[in-house]
Amino acid sequence: MPETGDAAPDFTAPLATGDVESFSLSERVADEAPIVLAFFPGAFTSVCTNEMCTFQDRLAAFDDVDASVYGVSRDSPFTLNEFRAQNDLEFGLISDFNAEIVDEYGISMDFDDLGVYGVAKRSVFVVDGDGEVTYAWVSDDPGVEPDYDEVEAAVTDAA
């Protein structure tokens, strides 16, 4: 798992924006940093929906410092587009359908009792304009949401 001060692992993946386009962290970091990568286990689940809606509710604070917010999950880009639409999310959602990003970031989690494997642990990484992780938070408990004030402060510090 990347920690504060590490280079953020680069990746390219589908981005759900209402349409589907390609997202490469290394191509966007210079223009969009600080970038918040908010990993969540699965769309349409209660805690994940609440988390993404909370980021939406606080989006103005990120916009004020020219930061970009992206949700990241193992869901398909088509599922993520429906999730965005149903929850009026204005930020893009990155599809890690093949679990490459989750593996690269070392945040894979299983729900053995449900037969669900390799989803993202609820995690938040802030990446600055140099591609460095300036904030890292990972929860082993999928029911715990990030400290949104702490994320906002980290973004402000990275701006």
Rank of each mutant, 00 (worst) to 15 (best):
D113V: 04
C53H: 11
D75E: 10
P77R: 05
V155T: 00
A33N: 08
M109P: 01
Y148Q: 05
E150A: 14
E152V: 13
G92V: 12
A154N: 05
R74W: 06
F40E: 01
A85H: 14
G115Q: 03
R28W: 10
F55T: 01
I35G: 06
A154Y: 07
R84Q: 12
D31C: 06
G5E: 06
S73P: 01
A154R: 11
V127D: 00
A61P: 00
F23Q: 04
D57F: 00
R122H: 03
F91H: 15
A13Q: 14
G42H: 08
V102S: 11
S76I: 10
A60N: 15
A158Y: 12
V127N: 07
V133C: 14
D112P: 13
V127L: 09
A60F: 13
Q86E: 15
S108C: 10
P14H: 13
Y105W: 07
F78V: 05
A158G: 10
A8Y: 01
D66T: 13
V47Y: 03
S139H: 06
G18D: 01
L89A: 13
D64W: 06
D149H: 03
E21R: 10
A33Q: 11
D10V: 07
I107S: 05
R122G: 05
S95C: 05
V29T: 05
F62G: 01
K121Q: 15
F97C: 00
G92M: 12
A13G: 04
V102W: 06
M52P: 01
G18A: 02
V119P: 00
S108Q: 15
S108Y: 09
S24W: 11
P2C: 08
R58D: 03
D112K: 11
S26Y: 07
A8I: 01
V20F: 11
